[in-house]
């Protein structure tokens, strides 16, 4: 990477009912890049099984990528990476689906079980 910057992300992983764990990822980045950029980079280069929810990538239009970064609720697509360590967790007040994904669909737009 041209700038040699590295973000250090501690990401909460796990499924409902399991204890969960933090995994540490180092992600090269350029100034201006976002937490969502880093999560997408991890899926391509380190671990494709990392679950995240997003649709619009950069426009902050879909509002699907809401997570906790360092204890604050933010959109991953508008939160910039820094060289400090960052802790990423799923929303605490929503049902966990997997890793950083929580149940945010309106109740009447979900189906339960396998339909």
């Amino acid at each position: 990477m041209e700038y040699g910057l590295k973000a250090r992300l501690d990401i909460r992983r796990g499924k409902p009912g399991s204890a969960g764990r933090f995994e540490r990822y180092e992600v090269p980045y350029e100034p201006g890049q976002t937490v969502l950029d880093a999560l997408r980079w991890i899926r391509i280069h380190r671990d494709p099984s990392l679950a995240i929810r997003f649709s619009c990538i950069n426009a902050n239009a879909c509002k699907e990528c809401m997570i906790r970064v360092d204890g604050k609720t933010v959109y991953a697509c508008t939160t910039r990476l820094t060289e400090k360590e960052m802790t990423l967790e799923p929303l605490p007040n929503k049902t966990l689906i997997k890793d950083l994904v929580t149940e945010i669909a309106p109740p009447d737009e979900r189906i339960t079980g396998d339909g």
């Binding site: 649709s55 619009c56 426009a59 239009a61 879909c62 699907e64 945010i104 737009e109």
Partner: peptide, 14 residues
Amino acid sequence: RSLIGRGGATVMAQ
């Protein structure tokens, strides 16, 4: 496949 009215192209049309 996404949430109703959130994914896709329309919501991004500025």
